[in-house]
């Protein structure tokens, strides 16, 4: 025994070597040279989200897959989150960041309901619209990118604005925002957006589109995405938001798939011609 009570009961340095504080946090004597680090790349990811505006509302869809690189890791992840009866958010990109945003939106919703109740018709105006929600999320995303700590997501925010007109807009990890009658993130920007734009080339066309056609176009796009996007799956969620509220289905299966085109493809694999 020595005369240093702080060393009593601790492994002896001359026997075991000095304590390795390498992995301890800085305030516990860990290495100090490391700067604070933030997300540098997404880990578990969701692929495309697509959406289209029609005369009285919006249709949005995303599949239920969360990938770990090329591994189809989780097959029942719901990437469409209803905020209230006027707004739905679709998440692409990092799933953990999606969960953070989901919790943020939950607490926002709780706070929104401190001040008013939903039954008063005058209060409906005070209900947070999809447009309000988009502004909020865009600011969250821009703040995080400006702190060099981005939320690695592409979001589609859809629903109704304060005048109950259809609303659709996006926000991404850089805080970039834009709005269009049809939107698609990720692979969908390449594969689905052209199909969506064919159905709805401009704002005027979207005001003439009916709900059934809009849903049909979106389902068709989900099929094309499944054919060609390797990080996609055949089960998906689809939501329709209009004045009646949010109608969300989370276990939709792709129907009437046609793989007849497959043997027409040349240029890959082992075919000889």
């Amino acid at each position: 025994m020595n005369h240093n009570p702080q060393a009593w009961g601790r492994p002896r340095d001359d026997v075991y070597g000095a304590y390795n504080s390498q992995y301890l946090p800085q305030h516990h004597g860990g290495p100090s040279a490391h700067p604070t680090t933030h997300t540098q790349s997404p880990i578990v990811t969701g692929t495309s989200v697509i959406a289209i505006k029609y005369s009285t509302g919006v249709v949005i869809a995303a599949d239920n897959l969360a990938s770990y690189g090329s591994l189809a890791r989780f097959t029942d992840v719901k990437r469409l989150k209803p905020f209230n009866r006027k707004a739905v958010v679709g998440f692409g990109g990092d799933v953990s960041d999606m969960q953070y945003l989901d919790r943020l939106l939950s607490s926002l919703d709780v706070q929104e309901n401190y001040s008013h109740n939903n039954d008063d018709p005058e209060d409906t105006k005070a209900l947070m619209s999809a447009k309000n929600l988009h502004t909020y999320l865009a600011k969250v995303m821009y703040k995080r990118r400006s702190d060099f700590n981005p939320l690695w997501n592409s979001l589609l925010i859809c629903g109704l604005d304060e005048k109950n007109k259809p609303f659709l807009a996006t926000a991404d990890l850089l805080g970039t925002t834009y709005s269009a009658p049809t939107l698609a993130t990720g692979f969908g920007a390449h594969l689905a957006q052209p199909l969506l734009r064919k159905a709805v080339p401009d704002e005027e066309a979207s005001q003439k589109l009916d709900k059934e056609t809009a849903v049909e176009v979106v389902r068709e796009c989900m099929k094309v995405l499944f054919y060609r996007d390797a990080r996609s799956m055949n089960e998906y969620s689809i939501a329709v938001v209009d004045e009646k509220g949010v109608e969300l289905k989370e276990k939709e299966k792709l129907e009437n798939q046609s793989w007849a085109f497959a043997d027409q493809i040349r240029g890959y694999g082992t075919q000889t011609v």
Partner: peptide
């Protein structure tokens, strides 16, 4: 050396 960020906060629109 410390790991560098691979996040680039700009894009050209």
């Amino acid at each position: 050396g410390p790991t560098q960020h691979s996040f680039y906060p700009y894009t050209d629109n």
